[in-house]
Design a protein around this nucleic acid. Structure first.
Length: 862
RNA sequence: GCCGGGGUGGCGGAAUUGGUAUACGCGCAGGACUUAAAAUCCUGUGGUUGCAUAAACCUUAUGGGUCCGAGUCCCAUCUCCGGCACCA
């Protein structure tokens, strides 16, 4: 009888359907003990028309391996999947395809799901949702209202970053350093538009402090820290000579406060007008301000520009130096939104120094440096102070800084102050494809949240949804939708027409999975009318259960066992935006007592990007895209999964290699073949399978198997998938040569059925199809391998033989092999080592000293 | 400039955290099978010297240091990648 060749296409579909039907991966929390649960999550995808990318495959396989491992280890596992489908890319794609995103998104989701199933990802599909489902975004809107009620949202007419191509306002974080929009790459301009703004700055301190509890990559933590950008410093109050106004400055370097000789102020600072009004300097100042406004955009683009300023004609009085007169200058480098917008300047700063040189402003020095090579204007905290009032002669150190700050506060010259880089979060988008912001404007009652019973405020299905020329949301043109009644007084009122940014849905989706179920799903967008017709939310036909604080609390109670997320896997490109926003929402919800934890993601692992074979990014325009469907078709899903887990450490960026993929294919094929050969139909008849201890090859192989099980068991939780697979490859190599030897000698096969099953089990998380097929057809098991118990290494197993390197003076000269650690006492090893000819050659005299690390190494010192 | 992470064969990378450096895979070379090729299998593969499967020496970016022993720890330097940046 012939062995069955490895043809994954013959059985992969079968098992997909079987797992679906059997609900093999349904998540159920079996007990109340939270230490037995694992919530494993990958950052959910944006379902684009291009379908899954091999990069998606990498993250999702990563969580899948982890989830399968924990499931087999007896944990309660939550491994869900959803779709993040609101936002600009989908809307722009829809405009391009001349399709309504409401019709397009579900099609894309179907493609994604189909591809995910073909990869054998073990999701609990009953929990699936898309952020665009009204049944989901009713909650997003409900959360908005809660945040509004707790005072975290305000509407403000404010100059904002505006993308003229996307025709929408943007958050600070969405603008790249070169002044372009992070999504579309076009140049940003400034525009005044009324915006809903989130007071994320209120949480700056907590967002920073709580980072210390997180098991996240150091780089991501650093990026979050930098973004929040906390600076502790001091505010100094100044009187202006001959005027009745106060100027406050911010300084982060209190040691040099006595050195400051002049002050610069941001051109857009409100006090500027007062300072120059009616003076001979007014005209020049106004010109400068105007010029500065013009320059703003170019400045962002060029990055580097000339430091310029004009004198205001006024002087501030320096409280540090007996009210010495400090000239006040307008300067184009003073930022209105950092510190107070006003800076005390001194010689001990490169920029200040250069500015003073340029405009011939007097400078003063207060530092005696030990190292004379350090330039005056370097930010260097060494040396001793001079000309610094009570602090002259003091060494610059932490104690001095503290004393200066204390003194400043005692003398009421100023006070300690903390400044942040983090800005409030602009939450309005003037676009169609997003969650409508559930607010209503009434002439009399001002802004009012939509009543809970009227949620969701459904996005109307419309023909035209392209951005308007005025910069207003396209929703504003739909009168029937806009006009409504005030929830408070009942008078005619208007809906907010801005929508939420893409981030809204992803800020809390991980909180939704635990309580989501098939019944809560609804991908129906039309509450009335047929596609192409406008459909509006109808209060009489409300089909959604009414969300309320009570019902949330109820839902949460049911699901709280799962939370927070234990393992979160995703790309480093979300280091700031998504992760910061989600952390912020969780903290706000904690304050609302809707959650009992403060951080959403306990352990975060980054996935590295997969580049094309030519080392460039995969892109349609380069024609270098690898489609996972094609790979699966040719090599099967298991080979693709094994390859992507083996190609490099999980977080490393790496180019695709079809040759290396073939190596992975060879591995799964060899696994298939050895099981067929030994335990398959032909195998079981021709060769006796047995396990008898005593024979060296069998003992060795069992030791190797145990070592491999241990390795895989400890590697998976550490996200070290590549070394897990390497260990399994090593085992297969040994197993193959041992069985080849056995069949040559017509001996028994070196691995019993039970032990052969163990290897299949540890392979199962990586190669779910192949392992299930062998499990069910070769071993004729009834239950899925993925519900079997992870193999344990019994205590009483044979040990692998131990090789002990022998060194003379720290140089390797020979190795000795012992069969068991029981023979590893020093005397025995030493005698053995001294017998070696090679060792004798280098050991001409008796060693003065012998260093022996049991079971590790022996070193003779002469 | 500031913050973070790296630098190990021809390539991706391993190394139980101070104990045989180069596991595993790819590639390459030689061989088997084949009319031939592909596929598959076997053997070899860090460098130098060497007929050698004898032996010796060298080797984890560079230079020092600690230690019986360093890819791993310490100091300095070079360099690459990622992030931030007129931030006072």
């Amino acid at each position: 009888m012939k062995n069955i060749p490895y043809q994954p296409q013959n059985f992969e579909k079968k098992w997909q359907e079987y797992w679906d039907m059997e609900k093999t991966y349904k998540s159920e929390i079996s007990n109340q003990k939270s230490d037995n649960k694992q919530y494993v999550l990958a950052m959910f995808p944006y379902p684009s028309g291009a379908g899954l990318h091999v990069g998606h495959v990498r993250v999702y396989t990563g969580t899948d391996v982890t989830a399968r491992f924990y499931r087999m280890s007896g944990r309660s596992v939550l491994h869900p999947m959803g779709f993040d489908a609101f936002g600009l890319p989908a809307e722009n794609a829809a405009i391009k395809a001349k399709k309504n995103p409401m019709d397009m998104v579900p099609e894309h989701i179907e493609t994604f799901k189909k591809q995910m199933k073909s990869l054998g990802l073990s999701y609990d599909w009953d929990r699936e949702f898309s952020t665009t489902d009204p049944s989901y975004y009713k909650w997003t809107q409900w959360l908005f209202i809660q945040f509004y009620k707790m005072g975290l949202l305000y509407k403000k007419d404010t100059p904002i970053n505006y993308c003229p191509v996307c025709k929408t306002g943007l958050a600070e974080e969405e603008v790249l350093p070169n002044g372009t929009h992070e999504r579309c790459g076009n140049k940003i301009t400034k525009k005044d538009l009324p915006q809903w703004i989130f007071k994320i700055t209120k949480y700056a301190d907590r967002l920073l402090a709580d980072l210390k509890d997180l098991d996240w990559p150091e780089g991501i933590l650093a990026m979050q820290r930098n973004w929040i950008g906390k600076k502790e410093g001091v505010i100094i109050h100044h009187k202006v000579d001959g005027m009745n106004i106060q100027l406050d400055t911010f300084s982060a370097y209190p040691a040099w406060l006595f050195a400051d000789t002049f002050i610069v102020i941001a051109p857009e600072h409100p006090s500027v007008q007062k300072l120059v009004k009616g003076t001979q300097y007014e005209k020049e100042a106004l010109n400068f301000i105007e010029e500065h406004k013009q320059m703003t955009q170019q400045e962002i683009l060029s990055g580097n520009f000339e430091k310029k300023g004009v004198f205001t004609g006024k002087y501030a009085l320096d409280p540090f130096n007996n009210n010495r007169k400090m000239p006040i200058w307008l300067a184009n480098f003073a930022l209105m939104d950092f510190g107070t917008g006003i800076i005390r300047c001194s010689a001990h700063d490169i920029r200040d120094y250069e500015f003073a040189q340029k405009y011939k402003i007097e400078l003063d020095e207060v530092v005696d440096r030990v190292d004379k090579k350090i330039p005056v204007n370097a930010h260097d905290n060494s040396g001793t102070l001079k000309n610094s009032g009570p602090f002259s002669g003091r060494k610059i150190d932490q104690k001095l800084i503290k004393d200066v700050l204390d003194w400043v506060e005692e003398t009421k010259i100023g006070k300690r102050e903390v400044s942040y880089h983090l800005r409030d979060w602009i939450f309005s988008r003037q676009r169609y494809w997003g969650e409508p912001i559930p607010m209503i404007y009434c002439q009399k009652c001002q802004w009012q949240p939509v009543a809970e019973k009227d949620l969701p405020v459904k996005l109307p299905y419309v023909k035209s949804y392209e951005p308007t020329e005025s910069g207003e949301s396209p929703l504003s043109t739909i009168k029937e939708w806009v006009n409504t009644d005030c929830p408070k007084c009942g008078q005619p009122a208007k809906r907010e027409t801005d929508t939420m940014p893409n981030w809204a849905g992803s800020c809390w989706y991980f909180l939704a999975f635990p309580f989501w179920n098939k019944e809560s799903q609804s991908r129906v967008f039309h509450s009335s009318g047929s596609p192409g017709q406008a459909g509006f939310p109808s209060r009489s036909k409300q089909t959604f259960s009414t969300p309320s604080l009570a019902s949330w609390a109820q839902q949460f109670k049911k699901s709280s066992n799962w939370l927070p997320v234990d393992r979160y896997l995703g790309g480093a490109e979300h280091a700031v935006l998504h992760l910061l926003y989600a952390r912020f929402w969780v903290k706000a919800l904690y304050d609302l007592k809707l959650l009992n934890f403060k951080e959403p993601f306990l352990k975060l692992s980054n996935v590295g990007m997969i580049l094309a074979e030519d080392h460039r990014k995969m892109s349609k325009s380069w024609g270098n895209v690898i489609n996972p469907d094609d790979v699966i078709k040719e090599y099967g899903a298991d080979a693709l999964r094994i390859y992507e887990m083996f190609m490099a450490p999980f977080s490393t960026e790496i180019p695709w290699s079809t040759e290396a993929l073939q190596g992975a294919y060879r591995f799964v094929k060899r696994v298939w073949e050895i099981y067929q050969k030994i335990y398959g139909q032909s195998g079981s008849r021709t060769s006796e399978v047995g396990e008898r201890s005593g024979k060296t090859s069998e003992v060795k192989l069992m030791a190797k198997l145990n070592k491999t099980i241990k390795k895989v068991t400890s590697d998976i939780p550490q996200v070290k998938f590549n070394t897990s697979i390497a260990a399994m490859m090593e085992f297969l190599n040994e197993w193959e040569s041992a069985s080849a030897k056995a069949s040559a000698n017509k001996g028994k096969m070196p691995l019993s059925k039970e032990n052969a099953k163990k290897f299949l089990q540890i392979l199962a998380p990586f190669a779910p199809f192949l392992s299930e097929e062998i499990w069910k057809t070769v071993f004729e098991e009834k239950q899925s391998i993925h519900l079997s118990s992870w193999p344990k290494v019994e205590g009483e197993t044979a040990e692998e033989q131990i090789i002990i390197p022998v060194q003379v003076m720290g140089r390797l000269r020979d190795t000795i092999t012992i069969q068991s650690s029981k023979r590893s006492d020093q005397k025995f090893i030493e005698e053995l080592a001294l017998k070696s000819e090679k060792v004798k050659k280098y050991l001409t005299t008796k060693p003065k000293k012998t260093i022996y690390v049991p079971g590790k190494i022996i070193n003779f010192i002469t």
